[in-house]
Design a binder for these strands. Structure first.
Lengths: 184, 184
DNA sequence: TTATAATATATCATACTGATATATTATAAA
DNA sequence: TTTATAATATATCAGTATGATATATTATAA
């Protein structure tokens, strides 16, 4: 069956918060879900068509500042579909870290290169952690206004813990490799 | 271009440690890389053929206890290909956690369901952490015998930190949700 | 004015999954 | 001893997604 299709329910979830266009959905995924999920235009637009065909969403063409825009809304059937997915246990929890792959094969390239991969990972984690910390500050400021904010805050805190632990691992690993890798 | 192909270099990396069959490669990935990378037979076998066609690996048919087996070895060109990938910065470091997706959409299903997802995540993380801890103990015992063990140990320690932090997040999130979710 | 960024959607080659199929050998259970 | 089940070993394919590319319009900065 290939990986069980998830993008339909991700989009339905976002539409359950707010009506959106495909373009809006992409931005929302990048801003709020990117820590633990992603999606490309190449799958978002076909999935939106499919949702309309199945009666899980409806499309309304709007004119926003002279520019055409298709805004999608979740239907009652869409809400039921979303709810039935939400009650199932998650079936895909995984990490894909090419950096770790390169560390794993470190003996082929030498200590120096492994250190470089770890330092890039650390630098990136620091940027992400900075972004997440300001998200958390913003969310905590508006926490009572919308129930969704609480759940968003919890996932942001997951990101905070992940990148904090990741940076810590990078430091320790660096130390170990610096110690043994005088030459190579 | 779709996701840049990575399985070729993953397999070359494993073959740089040891000659292996497709079946062996699958097991090795499950045992040693599954924390941060995965692969299915449906991609491993075609990739092995491709590696042979490109002259990056060679195939030798062996008879192991009356059972046919194709054992692959990395070539010099394969080693160069692996080395040139290893010196590039990683281009794919990501998490795909459906559990977090379900937490994010928690307001649609209610506090109780969100707690259930988090508890399943915690239970799974505890199992993984147990496995990783025994791996680490084994690796630390044989550390000087093979340079690869050090890099394997580093990635295992990444897993240890990840699942430890994950369990911690689950506990804290659980508490928060239990507090507010008396009813729903 | 001119270039660049942002908005908005569409298409497609390529990569990979997970299911299914097939066949053999090893091992545990009846 | 038969019988079932697990492990070894490989192959195929529909379905799901990525990321690159293309196109067109409006907004903004140089």
């Amino acid at each position: 069956m290939a990986t069980e299709k998830k993008l339909d329910v991700v989009i339905l979830g976002l539409l359950s918060h707010e009506n959106m266009s495909g373009y809006d959905i992409k931005k929302r995924i990048e801003n709020s879900l990117s820590l633990f999920w992603g999606a490309s235009y190449g799958s978002i637009y076909p999935t939106l068509k499919e949702l309309v065909n199945k009666g899980l969403a409806t499309r309304a063409d709007e004119l926003d500042k002279g520019r055409e825009k298709a805004v999608y809304s979740i239907t009652d059937r869409g809400k039921k579909h979303l709810a039935s997915w939400l009650e199932q246990p998650a079936s895909r929890d995984e990490i894909r870290y090419e950096s770790l792959l390169k560390v794993f094969f470190g003996s082929q390239a030498g200590t120096k290169q492994a250190i470089e991969h770890i330092q890039r990972l650390e630098a990136n984690a620091k940027v992400e952690l900075g972004n997440i910390k300001s998200s958390i500050a913003n969310l905590e400021a508006v926490l009572d206004s919308d129930e969704n904010h609480l759940y968003y805050l919890l996932t942001a805190k997951f990101g905070e813990m992940f990148y904090t632990a990741c940076i810590d691992w990078c430091c320790k690993s660096n130390e170990i490799l610096e110690k043994i890798g005088g030459g190579n």
